[in-house]
Write a protein that binds this DNA or RNA. Structure first.
Length: 492
RNA sequence: CGGGAAGUGGCGCAGGCCGGUAGCGCAUCUGGUUUGGGACCAGGGGGUCGCAGGUUCGAAUCCUGUCUUCCCGACCA
């Protein structure tokens, strides 16, 4: 077997890069920090997107679309918001090019300067709330439950395929409510939608929690999040849902008259997940031979590989068997492909589909035909089993669930084994450095302590878990009293 | 923006110190033999060596400038 990938042990970051590139998910583009999402990677995103979209609609949301450009003045209307994003905005200053008088191609036409610069959206709260001002007059106009599928740009200093690109695809929900309680309810509801999606479809267990003040979204009152754990022991924020209070309503002067004819500011939420989820998926499940994808979102769920020889009758039998199997599997809604490309040998195909993480492979060999058998192999455990041709379809169908559950349970065990309760500073440091994962420790609740810990260990507070047990304790750094543990980790 | 490294056929690299016909592996094309874990044999095609100057009879190689990318840090979903 060719070691096409750098192994995880040797260099985890390089393994990740190799994997993304060689499995055909994405590649670098001509633009710094921006990637090309290739058909295989986009197929994966489409499956994720479609499922999330269904879940958003089931919870009463509708899709809409707002401009990619935001007038510069909008960004300064909410103070915390501009602080958070100002340093990473792409700015459009001109609207025309012209031929260079010196003959060096084209230049920006200095005559074509925009009156007001336009910001390429890093997130859309401002442009959306500018519209909501016009949409909302009365409590009867509320709630507004809108989602947008879009690209956004954040001019990051350092980028990584899927995990942090300058441009990325995401969805952003922006809702408006008459009451604080309803907005908070919405924030929590969407966090649950995310958690359900990531756990059930991506087979990745998450911890639901609240961010501390310093990790909060710029402009939010509360940021809820789901945190996942990667194989290298680092945490990854997989999705966020923000309770925005009345901050944006006040900034954009969005008021409504309630039943008693009083003018009130609107309550807001926003929530989003991005193509970063693909990065999470890769790092959570894959191995040194390639991707391992959960069946529910794999672009291709089953591949059938024929092994021919010179016997034409056997070839014929393989082809008709494959055709029947495809028909049967497709009837059950399974995404299946028959790879009968004679330019590639079986061994090459085995390695290729393993690299691409196809959950199940069915091998139909000339030799098997005589015995009425097929070999069924699952990607996650590498187990192979000979199966009577009559049972193959049923076997494949049941494997879809078995692989999905197997991946989730494996990730769950790993995650649970990597939540370590710690009560002393020495232990805190050694667990972070030697074991990795989440460290559950007491914290005195101050941003100063949080900063100091980050500076000393590079670990941040990932979240305060929602279902947190209340218990008396002492801050792991300062020894000051604390009433609950929080989760620390090094993070992506 | 600070610190490293690198730009040579599609991809990965060698050559550079010591200037003299651009080379290797993979991929690709043609023909054939093969097919149970990344096949083999034979033949072929493809590169103004990142860009711009300079030195020289002659530059991938030496000099100057410049651009870009990747990795490590501060920032971030």
């Amino acid at each position: 077997m060719g070691n096409i990938l750098t192994s995880r042990k040797q260099d985890y970051a390089q393994w990740y890069n190799d994997l993304v590139l060689k499995s055909g998910l994405a590649e670098y583009s001509a633009v710094r920090g921006c990637m090309v999402i290739k058909p295989y990677g986009f197929g994966l995103w489409e499956n994720m997107r479609d499922q999330l979209d269904r879940m958003f609609k089931e919870t009463g949301h509708q899709n809409a679309y707002f401009p990619i450009f935001i007038p510069k003045s909008f960004l300064s209307k909410e103070a915390a918001h501009v602080d958070g994003f100002a340093k990473e905005c792409a700015v459009v200053t001109h609207y025309r090019l012209k031929n260079d008088p010196d003959g060096n191609g084209v230049i920006v036409d200095p005559e074509a300067k925009l009156e007001e610069e336009l910001i390429v959206r890093p997130t859309s709260e401002t442009i959306i709330w500018n519209s909501y001002k016009n949409w909302i007059q009365s409590y009867r106009d509320l709630p507004i439950l809108v989602n947008q599928w879009a690209n956004v740009v954040r001019w990051e200093m350092r980028t990584r395929l899927f995990l942090r690109t300058a441009e990325f695809l995401w969805q952003e929900g922006h809702t408006a409510h008459a009451t604080k309680e309803e907005a908070i309810q919405e924030t929590k509801q969407m966090l649950n939608v995310y958690a359900t999606f990531v756990e059930e479809y991506m087979a990745l267990p998450v911890i639901k929690g609240v961010k501390t003040e310093s990790e909060r979204f710029a402009g939010a009152e509360d940021t809820y999040c789901i945190e996942a754990l990667m194989q290298d022991g680092k945490a990854l924020q997989a999705g966020t849902s923000h309770f925005l209070g009345q901050n944006f309503a006040k900034a954009f002067d969005v008021k409504f008259s309630d039943k008693d004819n009083n003018m009130e500011y609107v309550w807001a939420t926003s929530w989003g997940v991005s193509t970063r989820l693909i990065g999470a998926l890769i790092m959570a499940h894959s191995d040194d031979d390639g991707l391992v994808l959960p069946p529910k979102i794999a672009p291709l769920q089953v591949v059938i590989v024929p092994i021919y020889n010179k016997d034409e009758a056997a070839t014929e039998k393989i082809n008709t068997t494959a055709d029947e199997l495809i028909k049967e599997l497709r009837a059950k809604g399974i995404r299946v492909k028959f790879d009968n490309d004679e330019g590639r040998r079986p061994g090459w195909k085995f390695a290729q589909y393993e690299l691409q993480g196809v959950p199940v492979r069915v091998t139909l060999g000339a030799r098997d035909m005589e015995n009425g058998l097929a070999e069924v192999a699952r990607r996650d455990t590498k187990e192979k089993e000979n199966c009577s041709l009559d049972d193959v379809a049923g076997k494949v169908v049941s494997l879809m669930d078995e692989v999905q559950d197997g991946l989730y349970n494996k990730a769950l065990n790993f995650r649970n084994e990597h939540i370590t309760k710690v009560d002393s500073w020495d232990e805190f440091v050694s667990v972070l450095n030697d074991k990795g994962g989440f460290v559950s420790a007491h914290w005195d609740g101050t941003a100063e302590t949080e900063d100091k810990i980050k500076e000393m260990t590079k670990a941040t507070i990932r979240c305060i878990p929602l279902d947190n047990v209340q218990e008396e304790g002492k801050c792991v750094l300062t020894g000051k009293p604390s009433k609950e543990r929080v989760l620390f980790a090094k993070a992506y």
